[in-house]
Amino acid sequence: MQKQTRAHQLRTISIVAVAALAVAGAMKNIAIGSLSGFGVKGISAICPLGYLETLLASRLMMPRLLLAFAAIVISVVILGRIFCAWMCPIPLIKRFLPKPAANKPAASAPDVAENSGQDFSLPSGVRLPILQSEIRTTSPEPTNRSERDTPGRTSSTGLLVLGGTLLSSAIFGFPVFCLVCPIGLTFATLFAIIRLFHFNEPTMDLILFPAIIAAELLLLRKWCSRICPVGALLSLAGKLNRSLVPTVDAKRCLALSSGTKCDLCRTSCDYEIDLKASQADSRVNQCTKCRECAERCPVHAIHFPLWKRT
């Protein structure tokens, strides 16, 4: 079990605050809504995927929402996919679900010392904020995986789900993904709990909604990086994002400067973005600015500059 980073705690607070705002809005009848659609009085914005789905399902333009959609796209261009790490409740829920059993038995895991070819050593004068053993234990797994799972491929399934969802909505005439969206179902569960106490309204939904969410996240472990069409849509807009892009200082980075087999930035990333890879790797558009890599980096080689110099 890894120690929680500061960014990790801040993210938890941020996600809980978003959910608390929605719950307060529901209890006080302010009608803030949920992440599916939120706003104050007549000013409203809806989930960008929800907008595209209803647009295709109803074939109505809804200019007011087009503006909101544009505003969301622009905010993603400016800030990147911060929604996914700082607002969406799913990463928080995932933490409470049982972790998968170690799928690689200890016997088949290659020995680190044998595999790495070079012993793990630190440049002089660098102090490690975390245990050296942590680096050793995390390194063998990615070296196995990187052979068949090269960067640049993981986002394609998310985009296919996005395409399928939009096509399905256009054909059948209702927003299809909304029916099973774990984000929407999370808020639906919260609202069902409120109604349980407010109107004494017990329903099976209180059990079924969490069951659907759990089934989705347990069967499709990489929901956020490979399935979620909302994230895929945001990462499309994220291709234009140039600010707060994680950047590696090659002089400090252990892997780049001394060839050490350190892969902590990649393994700490939910999207397995390899910052050490060459510029050809364009997957950085999936970055959710969770800051986990920067905080896990033993030599603080990763930072998030306001503007990415090319």
Partner: peptide
Amino acid sequence: SLCVRCNRCQE
């Protein structure tokens, strides 16, 4: 075709 289940009307 239009409802996105945002709960605002209810609130």
